[in-house]
Design a protein around this nucleic acid. Sequence first.
DNA 1: CCGTACTACTTTGCATGACTACATAGTGAG
DNA 2: CTCACTATGTAGTCATGCAAAGTAGTACGG
Lengths: 112, 112
Amino acid sequence: MQSSTDGNLLRGTLDFLLLASLEHGPLYGLRIIQDVQQRTGGHFNFKEGTLYPALHRLEKRNLIQGETRPSDTGGPPRKYYHLTPTGQTELTRQREEQRAHARALRPYLELA
Amino acid sequence: MQSSTDGNLLRGTLDFLLLASLEHGPLYGLRIIQDVQQRTGGHFNFKEGTLYPALHRLEKRNLIQGETRPSDTGGPPRKYYHLTPTGQTELTRQREEQRAHARALRPYLELA
DNA sequence: CCGTACTACTTTGCATGACTACATAGTGAG
DNA sequence: CTCACTATGTAGTCATGCAAAGTAGTACGG
């Protein structure tokens, strides 16, 4: 499991997080996990069994594309993923969807 | 399907919406759907096949409790659900969880 | 070389839960 | 009796997050 989130809350957000992580340049798998952890103050920390299937899913949908490169710090080669044009479009769409979701939820979060 | 939301986004939010709907007094199933629709400006509108199993799930966890009452407008009897003390506690917990989720997501929603 | 450690990616199997579609039933009108 | 409307219920399907285990590549100590 992850530290802070119920798995159900990650659903429908994971793909968005991955796409958004690649928005400013290619990253490889394990690096994405660290990236998301940092940017969310440790809130999201999923494991490889969550990450890699998701990446493959996105690649199959042609939203991202992977490219294997040798590691520069020693270690096995890394698979760097970058957004495709379709992926960028989808990211924009999902960002708006996330915003709408947050907006719709707001009345339920205020007050007790 | 629903109009605005991807089903995955509803996951982990549905139970919270239901609990929150009952916070200010008992409601019956179909009425909850209308209630949520209204309070979210039509964003969430799930169907009976989504609602009832969720209600049963919550009742099995003793977070809500149902009570059948005759309809006051004609029609079949209605099952009014109300929060149990445990349910109220759980609602508070989930509300904080939702807030944390929204907070963690914020950096990804800003800017392009 | 060999064993160990670390990094990186992959896969299997499972459990959860939203959705579609359909089923059941109470009530009142005509 | 039949039709329409309301209300609750459920079976089957599908997507997907997760734990756990496996496979490699690289470097280093001996």
